[in-house]
Amino acid sequence: MSYGDDTTVIARTVARITLPLVLVVAISLLFQGHNLPGGGFIAGVLTAAAFALVYIVFGMEYVQETIFGDEYEPDGSVAGPAVVDRYRTLFGVGLAVAAGTGLGAMAFGKPFLTHTDEVVKPSTEYVAWIPGADFIFGTLFKFHWATAFLFDIGVYFVVVGGLLAILAVVGGE
């Protein structure tokens, strides 16, 4: 069975090309969100927009059968199609991750939601003879980690799960 027979070739081709771009931008926004414009919320919205595009162009059956491998059976129940259940779980897990990062701080004796970050640079002591070692190991491979990123991941899951659940329920009717 082929999907999206009722949409034009143009729509399907454009969707195939833009989809990876949208997702890559979403992920990059997610990764820089803790100290630059971006973050879990906007990345989640963008991801949900990418899924909405797939829904519109290829139909809900495509997402459900190809991506999740579920049988698609449109039913009139309040809970909506079966895939909604997955979205709701994602939503719950996201909330758990976000709240978990807040609780994690309490394990270290800090108030709820306290966050920390650190810039890690590999030592250039033994590789100083390589030309441009400072640039390579000091700048290129400098790693800035922040616990706020974990919180952002939680927010991302919440937004993706929440918006997709709404889309699936409303779209399924």
Binding site: T89, F91, G92, A96, A99, L103, G109, P111, F112
Partner: peptide, 27 residues
């Protein structure tokens, strides 16, 4: 600090319960 952590305890208990009930909603 430990005493003051108690201030947020009711809030967190309710929040964690809400999240857990969401996570196990299938059962």
């Amino acid at each position: 600090m430990a005493t003051e952590q108690l201030v947020v305890a009711p809030l967190l208990v309710a929040l964690v319960t809400a999240i857990l009930t969401l996570v196990v909603h299938r059962y």
